[in-house]
Write a protein that binds this DNA or RNA. Structure first.
Length: 823
RNA sequence: GCGAGAGUGGCGGAACUGGCAGACGCGCCGGUCUUAGAAGCCGGUGGGCAACCGUGGGGGUUCAAGUCCCCCCUCUCGCACCA
């Protein structure tokens, strides 16, 4: 053993060892319990950042710990490698996206991740931009197409005029493109969609079956899915006999309707204004509203405006005639694009009615105090009794909701419905660097799926990246022109590619059998490994990726490929790494480069610090001095091991015979503490603190000349430190283990167990309080009865001082903790 | 506005079912070693001269409250014209 700890040499040695020994390669083994630990795979941007270091350090502790506990641990890594940055690099630096991506991957894998000493089974690496992976995206797409889960429709989408592509909702930040800052516009395009709404109900219901997920993520998903139960009711348009269908969650207020509002895009608008004097004004209004960007339009602070169409609709419940307005706040893509307005019981309708002088009619009466329309300053939205509602008068409104719904349904003027906020998932992207959509358009046969035998539809490499016009695929004649698989005639390929979220929606299944070439994954392998026991990643994917992955898992289950309903059993959302109180970013100049830290201190220090500075789910404030502290701790462990390793060569580690020894007790207390902290929600920071305490105790224990008979206890302590530290600072621990004369790899050693008997203290220190204030401390034998403890406390000199001769009114004894004397 | 989470020394953070607030680390102060310094090692470190006071503020329950209850303030994150 070297006298000084040189992280670089140590880490290289063990990284080579693990690689040569194939230490972390795994296969299915039904005789052992499996554990699947997964961190969200990275986009190969070129360099890892501190967020990755933290994410992978957390996952690696979990994996190595579970491994030491005897689990067969699947811990894979791969690359989410399709996406815009590669293409932008191509335009800017004239390098092909594939070359750029693959080079980034080898750099990040070989020069960065492998230097962190992560226990990945690199034999399972998955790279989504390779045909062997994306052909299965295409295969799954075709299965979904067959089941009607993938379909094409015209719709309005976010469009960045400068990047010349559709943007996903998440790529639009405050109405501008996340990448170039251009104002995002809307464009009506024919796009492919996945029918995620077919699974809305199950996606929502199963949020109750994920106790291992953070509540806030589940809440975000529930909000996003946005289930809303209500009724559709048909209003007849007076005069032209047309029908206006509205959706409402408040059928109990149907008798209070005083006007209707429809979206400017509503197909009925033209019909309603036909021949009316208002026609031009309405058209102008609609034009003006529709021109606005979605972000502006749906901003709540946007003034609520409307215009009367001149038409009237008839309320089917009371046959009353109410005016139909066009409102700028009515959305065509939610519900039916038309609403009934009840100003007395809806705040927005109330404001609108006040603004335009529309009548207000109370139909839900407040039981405590009658509502007075003239005095009302806001809509009454609380519970009450139905009034002015014909046959329903006197019904409590909660029950009224059901009764009116039944009534409407019986009379055939409407039906119960459920509306979802969740939209179908638009997956088309007008970009090159993604999975080609396996569809061919033939003038004779229409939309034709590419047959399985022709998969993969390869991305052509000989395309031009100009950054102008349409996407390189659309410009590529050789790609676009093909023959129809059905009739053999001339046909053209779909030139859009798939959203990269498709890639990440099932990669965790691919890891189970990454080289399988008959299906996306081997069913048996997946049955053994799935589901993911622990998934770890950033909160930013709370809705998108995590919802899509859940959706895909259910689709694949329904295709008979897997039996699991949910992909991720437990989810840990780790906090951000921040510096000087702000997220690390180039523009703020507060970025800490992982390479720099690893070169200077080694990976073990980088890992240890990022685990020690904060609990995993909280933000971590980066501190250069804190890193020094972690480094110093490893040096301390190294130094004391070095001091004893020669003398310990022939010494066996102490066992039960050492019970009662101070250090031996601390060893076992530490095993318990570290084990509990890992098991209890991965509290690595306190686990590391406990190891530091043990090392501090060890220094104190050895500070005076140590008799030879204590050496077995020192050996036990050092071996335990090495074992407990193994998941956290793996290279370092291997080296200690070797220095202590052990020949095995510590990564395969069983996790130490503690001896409950050894933990027990023979003497305990009790706090003695007088009237709740600490006045003295008592060191007594453990396990004395309350009576004796009380007597000892009352006899204490300092206690007598504070009780001043008064006799105690009450004495509380809490075993092992304190005595409180009340006078 | 609604929902979730948080507020503890100079800093990051501990404190299991109410039971010594501040574990551990950083920083700072002192000692040792050294010609000197760095590193290491050892000791100290919430405030206050003290009685005492201290976990965002104010009430309460309790022998005992960071922890439980009520009211309020601040911050972070999500949702937010969804009919």
């Amino acid at each position: 053993m070297e006298e000084r700890y040189e992280a670089g040499t140590v880490e290289q040695r063990w990284q080579r060892f693990w690689e040569d020994e194939r230490t972390f390669r795994v296969t299915e083994d039904p005789s052992r319990p499996k554990y699947y630990c997964l961190e969200m795979f990275p986009y190969p941007s070129g360099r890892i950042h501190m967020g990755h270091v933290r994410n992978y350090s957390i996952g690696d502790v979990v994996s190595r710990y579970k491994r030491m506990r005897g689990f067969n641990v699947l811990h894979p890594m791969g690359w989410d490698s399709f996406g815009l940055p590669a293409e932008n690099a191509a335009i800017k630096h004239n390098v092909h996206p594939e070359k750029w991506t693959l080079e980034n991957i080898s750099f990040m894998r070989d020069k960065q991740l492998k230097r962190m000493g992560l226990s990945y089974d690199w034999g399972r690496e998955v790279t989504t931009c390779l045909p062997e992976y994306y052909r299965w995206n295409q295969w799954i797409f075709l299965r979904m197409f067959e089941k009607g889960l993938a379909y094409k429709k015209r719709s309005y989408v976010n469009w960045c005029p400068s990047c010349a592509t559709v943007l996903a909702n998440e790529q639009v930040e405050n109405g501008v493109c996340w990448r170039c800052g251009s104002v995002v516009t809307h464009k009506e395009l024919e796009q492919w969609f996945f029918r995620i709404t077919s699974y809305a109900e199950e996606l929502l219901e199963h949020t109750d079956k994920l106790p291992g997920w953070p509540e806030r993520v589940l809440t975000m998903q529930r909000n996003w899915i946005g289930k809303s139960v209500g009724v559709e009711v048909d209003f007849t348009v007076e005069g032209n006999g047309g029908k206006l269908t509205i959706f409402t969650t408040r059928p109990d207020t149907l008798y209070g309707v005083t006007f209707m509002s429809i979206a400017p895009e509503h197909p009925m608008v033209e019909k309603l204004i036909q021949g009316k004097p208002q026609a031009d004004a309405v058209r102008a209004f609609c034009q003006r509203v529709m021109r606005l960007d979605k972000a502006v339009r749906t901003d709540e602070s946007q003034e609520k405006e409307g215009v009367f169409t001149g038409a009237y609709a008839v309320n089917p419940l009371n046959n009353e005639k109410v005016p139909v307005w066009v409102g700028n706040f009515v959305l065509m893509d939610y519900g039916t694009g038309a609403i009934m307005s009840v100003p007395a019981h809806d705040q927005r309708d109330f404001e609108f009615a006040k603004k335009y002088g529309i009548p207000v009619r109370v139909v839900i009466q407040n039981a405590k105090k009658d509502l007075d329309i003239a005095a009302m300053k806001a809509a009454y939205i609380d519970e009450g009794t139905m009034v002015g509602s014909g046959p329903f008068d006197g019904t409590p409104n909660a029950a009224g909701k059901e009764k009116v719904a039944d009534y409407v349904q019986e009379r055939g003027i409407g039906k119960r419905t459920v509306n979802w906020r969740l939209r179908d998932w638009g997956v088309s992207r007008q970009r090159y660097w993604g999975t080609p959509i396996p569809i061919v358009y033939c003038d004779a046969c229409g939309t034709v799926p590419v047959p399985d035998k022709d998969l993969p539809v390869l991305l052509p490499t000989d395309v031009a990246f100009t950054g102008k016009g349409s996407s390189p695929l659309a410009e590529s004649t050789s790609f676009r022109e093909t023959t129809c698989p059905t009739c053999g005639g001339k046909a053209r390929r779909e030139t859009d590619t798939m959203d990269t979220f498709v890639d990440s929606s099932w990669y965790f299944l691919r890891y189970c059998s990454p080289r399988h070439d008959a299906a996306p994954f081997d069913k048996k392998a997946a049955a053994y490994w799935m589901n993911v026991d622990q998934y770890i990643g950033g909160i930013e994917h709370a809705v998108l990726h995590l919802l899509y992955a859940r959706f895909f898992t259910k689709v694949l289950r329904d295709l008979g490929l897997t039996d699991v309903d949910e992909p991720f059993k437990n989810l840990l959302t780790q906090g951000m790494v921040i510096k000087d109180g702000a997220k690390m970013s180039k523009s703020k100049g507060n970025v800490v480069d992982p390479d720099f830290i690893i070169n200077k201190y080694g990976a073990d220090t980088a890992r240890l610090f990022s685990l020690f500075a904060a609990p995993p789910e909280k933000d971590l404030e980066w501190s250069d001095q804190g890193v020094d502290g972690a480094y110093r701790f490893l040096h301390r462990v190294w130094a004391i091991t070095h001091r004893y390793h020669e003398r310990l060569r022939t010494v066996r580690a102490a066992g039960n015979e050492a019970r009662g020894d101070r250090l031996f007790r601390k060893v076992h207390q530490t095993i318990r503490k570290v084990t509990e902290d890992i098991e209890r929600q991965f509290q690595f920071n306190t686990a590391i603190a406990a190891m530091m305490e043990l090392v501090n105790e060890l220094y104190e224990y050895t500070s005076k000349d140590l008799p030879a008979e204590k050496l077995p206890i020192v050996r036990r302590a050092l071996e335990t430190v090495a074992l407990l530290l193994a998941p956290f600072a793996p290279h370092f621990s291997e080296e200690l283990w070797r220095a202590l004369g052990r020949e095995t790899s510590i990564a395969g050693e069983p996790w130490p167990s503690f001896d409950a008997e050894a933990i027990k203290e023979s003497e305990i220190t009790l706090v003695v309080q007088v009237n709740g204030k600490v006045r003295s401390k008592l060191t007594i034998a453990a396990g004395l009865p309350d009576r004796e403890i009380e007597a000892a406390a009352l006899a204490d000199a300092k206690v007598r001082e504070h009780t001043a001769g008064k006799s105690p009114k009450k004495v509380i004894v809490v075993q092992g903790k304190l005595v409180n004397i009340v006078v």
